[in-house]
Structure formats: structure tokens, C-alpha cells
Simulated assay, not measured.
Amino acid sequence: MSVHAMALNWPLQPQAVLFDLDGTLADTAGDLGGALNRLRVQRGLAPMPLDLLRPHASAGARGLIAVGLDIHPGHAEYETLRLAFLDAYTHCLSDTTALFDGVAELLDQLEQAGLKWGVVTNKPHRFTIPVMQGLGLDQRSMSTISGDSTAHAKPHPLPLLTACEQLKSDPAATLYVGDDLRDIQAAQAAGTRSAAAAWGYIGHGQDIQDWGADVIAQRPLDLLTVLGLNPR
């Protein structure tokens, strides 16, 4: 069973931390929800409140179209709506997106401790880079892997292994942090340690305790304890 934030027994000295982007490093739900609501308005529907959309934000277009329009992959309209959603999102990538509370301090302390960090997301590259630029992190991240950067996306281990290769970090000495079951599955498959981000977009009906993460972090700065660093 997963344990809450505590120092892990690392087989090697921790070398790097990798983060999921949406719902882990940054709160992007407002902009993703805004794109979905543009589609609803175009169809004569009222915008949905963000608190109803937020739990589905980590699932991107698929999750938001499902909850907002009740249309799923395989439906005749799905692909058209998916492309329309992505087009709408290009116009609001950084309107409200911001780092979660504590993330800026966490990244500062990782860098001060000499730990490398990067991002592994299923978000397409054409969206990942502008969002990272808007957050002021594009030059600080030492590896940024998007959903279309490798032949497979999470939960396949290849994106994480590619990031570890770029960072020159041993997977066993790398922590991956994410707010979705796919993130934990990818970490397990890649042989990294895993932390479930309880502050993220945990979907309705999901029990984070069941994911099998090495630890559950309630807030970003808890990761300092996980890594054996003393919070300053």
C-alpha cells in the first residue's frame, strides 16, 4: 500500500525529479475548461462551472469532451470535436494557467540541492512549449517530453526513460510525480520511484490509495521529505 509523504529508502542517491504538467506542476484546468466551454457555447449550451470540469482536466480533450458534451472516442462526432477543442485551446493556453502553490519554492530548492528536474506530459508538444514558456520554466527544465515526443505516451515507460536518458539520471534514482493513475503506471514500468500528487486533478470515483504509488504527497513541498531534503 502507498504511504503518505515520508523519506524513501533510495537504492541510489536521488538524482532527478520528473513531473507531469497538467494537475501536477501547473494548474491548467481554467484554460482547458475554457476551451471546452467554447465548444459548449458554440452548440448553444451554457458554460459549465470549473469545479465540475477540474477533476477531468488531466484526461485532456478526451475527458473534457466526455464530461462536457457526453461524447466519447468512437462516436461519429468525436474526432471533429477533438480537433475543435484543440483549436480553441490554442487561443487560451496561458490565460489563467499558473504553478500550484509551493511548486516555485520546490523547484528552487531542488536546484539549490543540485537535483535535476524535468517534465513528462501527454500534452502535445505544440501546447507544452508555450505553456512552459508562459510559466517561465522552458529554460529551467532540463528535459521536457511531450505526448508526441516519443513513439508512445504514458502509461508506456518510454517517455520517462527518454527523460532519464536526457538528464543522465538512473531511473532507480529518479522520482516521477503525477496526479493520474497513468503516471504511476508509467513510473512503475520505467523503474522510477513514484509520488502521487494529491493536490492535482484526481478524478471522481478514483481512490489515490489504490494506485500503488511509493508515496502520496499532499502538497508539493512534501516532496522535499520524500527526497530526504530538509525543507528550508
Rank of each mutant, 00 (worst) to 15 (best):
T150D: 11
H156D: 15
L93R: 02
Y89C: 08
L45I: 02
G63I: 10
Q109K: 08
K154T: 01
R62C: 02
P47F: 01
A151Y: 00
H156R: 00
L52K: 14
T121Y: 00
S143L: 09
P130V: 10
H156G: 07
L137G: 00
N122Q: 00
R62T: 15
R82F: 05
E105R: 13
H56C: 09
A61C: 01
G102M: 13
L160F: 09
G68C: 10
Q112R: 15
L45S: 05
A76V: 09
L161F: 08
G63N: 12
G102C: 10
G60Q: 11
H125F: 03
L160A: 04
T128I: 04
V67H: 10
D148R: 12
K168C: 11
C164Q: 08
V120L: 00
P49V: 00
R126A: 15
L161V: 08
S169I: 04
D87A: 15
M142I: 07
C92A: 08
A59K: 13
Y89P: 03
H56F: 15
A59Y: 06
D101H: 06
K123P: 07
K123T: 11
D101M: 01
L135N: 10
Q112S: 14
E77S: 14
A172F: 06
R38I: 02
E77A: 15
V67A: 13
H91S: 13
G102K: 00
R126D: 07
L93G: 04
L81S: 08
A59S: 12
R82S: 13
S94P: 01
H56N: 08
L64I: 01
L86F: 05
G136C: 09
G44S: 00
P55Q: 13
L50E: 09
D148F: 10
P47V: 03
P159R: 11
P130L: 06
L137N: 12
T150M: 07
A61Q: 04
H152N: 12
D87M: 02
